[in-house]
């Protein structure tokens, strides 16, 4: 159950989602990925995609307009 991070700060859609998809594919069940984003569109589509896959998702607003999307692989 390892924890990984993905820095997508400054990146616009659909880059954060594509990077997240790629990174998640390499993770094991129970592993956690924390994606750092500051693009409000990614704040919507990354969690939406992850939920559809059945992963556990949590979004945390770490600063004004800056979010951490925490995804636990199912």
């Amino acid at each position: 159950m390892a924890e990984f991070e993905l820095d997508c700060l400054g990146e616009a859609c659909p880059v954060p989602l594509m990077k997240t998809e790629k990174k998640m594919a390499g993770l094991k069940s129970g592993d956690t990925l924390i994606v750092h984003i500051d693009h409000s569109c990614a704040m919507k589509n990354v969690p939406e995609w992850a939920r559809k896959q059945g992963h556990n998702v949590e979004v945390e607003e770490v600063g004004d307009g800056e979010w951490d999307v925490i995804i636990e692989k199912c």
């Binding site: 949590e58 945390e60 607003e61 636990e72």
Partner: peptide
């Protein structure tokens, strides 16, 4: 604010618990 799903709740008693995945 926490943007995540609630997984379970324990509502009885004085100390109530709301669980998310983390």
């Amino acid at each position: 604010f926490k943007l995540t799903d609630v997984k379970a709740v324990r509502l009885e008693g004085e100390d109530k618990v709301v669980e998310t995945f983390r």
